[in-house]
């Protein structure tokens, strides 16, 4: 299953990267003559209410969804891990401040954050990136902090202090390599969540702006003409489901490999 998931995910990533070459039509090209068509040899997944090729829109939408779905969690992982390392290692005031901010952000609903940012700035890729990064970073900070706290007292860290190493080197060389495992596991799972959230935000009109395609706003557009042509919704929904499923499978597998506790 893991292998199948990897193949599926690799295929999706490749399609997204080479969207221009793979897509049969321009995803933005409208055609009054061919609106709401059923799947055919010409349009494999039919057309939407503006006559745009659904397959081409899904392929180009994969680009936005994946780019955001990967970059936001990765950015959040980098920021969160850094904050967790600092808080867990140094303790004291730094830890308390980081901890309170973390708690605050965890208690704040992501969608509400999305609405606020979209209202204050604008909707679009960069706003979504910011929202998702802010929403996810505390989760990584927590994991990194807990793992760092456990390692802070490890004899090999004491040995490094006794050697005269600086705190920066100790964090980078002795603590980071030992906490990266749990962070990576969580990262794979949060990529799936980020793709879902991108879809949600775009569906609500807070994300990718039309006419550009993302899986979320394909569903949003499709909703208006659901009874004329359900194909956009079905296709985008399937694309999201398959990607998220594959990511979750991979995440579980990564966790099993890295964590001896769950290895059977």
């Amino acid at each position: 299953m893991t292998l199948a998931s990897l193949v599926v995910l690799a295929a999706i990533v490749l399609i997204a990267v080479f969207a221009e070459q793979v897509a049969p039509y321009n995803p933005l090209a409208q055609s009054i003559l061919s609106v709401n068509q059923l799947p055919s040899a010409k349009h494999w997944l039919g057309t939407d209410q503006l006559g745009r090729d659904v397959l081409s829109r899904i392929i180009h939408g994969a680009r936005t969804s994946l780019l955001l779905g990967i970059s936001a969690p990765v950015l959040a992982a980098v920021i969160g891990t850094f904050l967790g390392l600092v808080g867990g290692y140094f303790g004291g005031w730094a830890d308390r401040i980081i901890g309170r901010i973390t708690d605050l952000l965890l208690a704040f609903p992501v969608l509400l954050l999305g609405i606020i940012v979209a209202a204050a700035l604008s909707s679009g890729f960069w706003s979504m990136l910011m929202v998702l990064t802010i929403a996810f970073a505390p989760r990584f900070a927590r994991i990194a902090r807990a793992s760092t706290l456990a390692l802070r007292q490890a004899p090999f860290v004491e040995a490094a202090i006794a050697a005269g190493l600086g705190h920066g080197v100790i964090l980078y060389r002795h603590i980071l390599p030992n906490i990266i495992g749990p962070v990576v596991v969580v990262l794979t799972l949060w990529i799936a969540t980020a793709i879902r959230l991108e879809a949600t935000l775009s569906f609500l009109g807070l994300g990718t702006r039309p006419p550009f395609a993302s899986w979320g706003n394909i569903i949003r557009d499709g909703l208006n003409a659901m009874f004329g042509s359900p194909w956009p919704i079905i296709a985008a929904g399937l694309a999201i489901s398959i990607t998220v499923l594959a990511l979750n499978m991979i995440g579980d597998a990564v966790r099993d490999v890295l964590d001896p506790e769950t290895r059977t």
């Binding site: 004899p155 090999f156 004491e158 040995a159 005269g164 390599p177 030992n178």
Partner: peptide, 22 residues
């Protein structure tokens, strides 16, 4: 302190935990 650490070192009880496994 760093200079002093050249003069004084420690041997740990736990020969397993006192070295980074990697």
């Amino acid at each position: 302190m760093k200079a002093l650490r050249r003069q004084m070192q420690i041997i740990f009880q736990d020969p397993f935990g006192s070295m980074s496994p990697r």
